[in-house]
Design a protein around this nucleic acid. Sequence first.
DNA 1: GATCTTATACGAATCTAATCGTATCTTGCT
DNA 2: AGCAAGATACGATTAGATTCGTATAAGATC
Lengths: 130, 130
Amino acid sequence: MAGSKPTLKPTEAELSLLNILWKIGPATVKQVHLTVSETQKIGYTTVLKILQIMHEKTLVVRDETNRAHVYAPADSQVQTQTSLLKDLVTKAFGGSTSKLVMRAIGDSTTKEEINDIRQMLDRLEQESKQ
Amino acid sequence: MAGSKPTLKPTEAELSLLNILWKIGPATVKQVHLTVSETQKIGYTTVLKILQIMHEKTLVVRDETNRAHVYAPADSQVQTQTSLLKDLVTKAFGGSTSKLVMRAIGDSTTKEEINDIRQMLDRLEQESKQ
DNA sequence: GATCTTATACGAATCTAATCGTATCTTGCT
DNA sequence: AGCAAGATACGATTAGATTCGTATAAGATC
């Protein structure tokens, strides 16, 4: 579409804040800082600054209605995961998704996870037969 | 093991040089520069510098026997791919490999690739039954 | 051995990410 | 109006990645 952004790659710190927003939904800096502080020591203004930068980059949208701005991810978790995967496929797997998948499966997957994957393949097969 | 390094994550530029080394085997700066120049414009001393930094980080090993040093990856492509995948699983998929795999499969995989993956699952199943 | 070629080493500039301290602004309350 | 609380904005610092120009060193050649 004309005018749409090419989905830029979040940095590591940005991704960790996005994870929180996907989890708890639209939130103020205070809420994000509180949540992220559960697992890592980080200053309030650092979180604020990162969210501001993400806003400039349009990685998040911001509701400025109230004094405490409310931030929400601009892209869905699925879109972002897809974009990160595509990037890794390109840069580390010579563009081959199946190579990535096979490496991922081959390494450290539990039996349950393998079953999940198999079921999804079955589902895909079903759909493609229609 | 005592003394072994935790396999650190290569940067983007470093990964692109590693890809070349995995492809063409141990090589001099000249050879690496020549190869990388096929796809991107980059100065000779830039390649040299990056390889030197990678050597400091022990991402590559260096044979200094001859005047033109010969560089080789310190870790295999498989090890590095595994490490990068693990990193992505942790940071973008909440630690779930199967979530990553399902996302990767669901997105943009050709029928041939799906077959490859299915065959690998079959193979895994066979092995686990022994 | 002087010089030409071709390598590495070094240092600097630029850019981005990440961090946080301080300044400023807004709002509700007295 | 003035103040206190709590929010954003701004600027600076640090660290790492990337780039490359220049200096230096090591061989080959005449």
